[in-house]
Design a protein around this nucleic acid. Structure first.
Lengths: 136, 136
DNA sequence: CTTGACTTTCCAGCGTACTGGAAGGTTGAC
DNA sequence: GTCAACCTTCCAGTACGCTGGAAAGTCAAG
């Protein structure tokens, strides 16, 4: 199977697969006499795994670690649980931050609608942004 | 006022101020005979404005636009309202995405706790990640 | 006068996950 | 044989907001 075919099977591109190989996510496949990469079907599953891990919000760095454990012949499941837990914490922290920001933006916009053409203090750039956020 | 003093007054660094100048956010100040930048107090307010705008989640690109309008002598408030509205939409979209991801991660982790040592299908890297997310 | 803290410019790199393009070799159908 | 569509390597760039460092000049205190 050539690289373009593997890409078509997995919804990626040849470029990305070469990039993954260079990044240590995909092992080097055998080569045809011409130099073309020749993939066996196992590479499909590996690529699908990478995509699922990305869908779970894992970074390529995380995925590389998991795959390295797998390639040593160990079951990476414990590690995967840990990484997923950490990622969940991160995601929750991000959500909290964004909700804070959302609140701040809503407050600014409410403020912006109230005072329409008053308060044009020429010393400032724009009075709408004069208030500091409550927490950050 | 030298650049380091301005930085100290506004909680930034001299590096950052030079970067803002180069990025078109801060105008070029006058120079002393030695070549040192010499800032008047108005620059403090401008830098504070930049920080407030950043706290509202605006990008430097957005801020540059707002400041450009201000520097033309127009009141940028209408534009600011628009940018804040767009940013609020973005933030809400991001929150929705992250909540989807959070749900997915929770499902995976719940799945991971249930089946402890069963299902070790050696053909896959890790069974925990076998399920696709529901929507993405 | 010396010393150390400050300033100047310029160029380069961080991290993330790719993507684009150049210059060339291979394959397969017609 | 010839043509397009594929493949190869390598280098560089994208977006974002800085940050680090080198080499040189300036300022203020002691």
């Amino acid at each position: 199977m050539k690289i373009g075919e593997l890409a078509a099977h997995t919804g990626t591109t040849a470029k990305t697969i070469r990039f993954y190989e260079q990044s240590g996510l995909m092992p080097e496949p055998t080569r045809r006499p011409s130099g073309y990469r020749d993939y066996s079907t196992e590479f499909i599953e590996r690529l699908h795994f990478i995509r699922r891990a990305q869908a779970a919000g894992l970074s390529l760095r995380d995925i590389r670690q998991v795959l390295a454990i797998h390639d040593r012949g160990e079951a990476p499941c414990g590690h995967v649980r840990g990484v997923l837990g950490q990622r969940l914490d991160q995601v929750r922290a991000q959500i909290a931050e964004l909700i804070t920001l959302e609140t701040h933006l809503e407050a600014l916009l409410a403020h912006a609608e109230q005072d329409n053409d008053t308060d044009h203090d020429s010393s400032t750039v724009c009075w709408i942004l004069e208030s500091e956020p409550d927490n950050a």
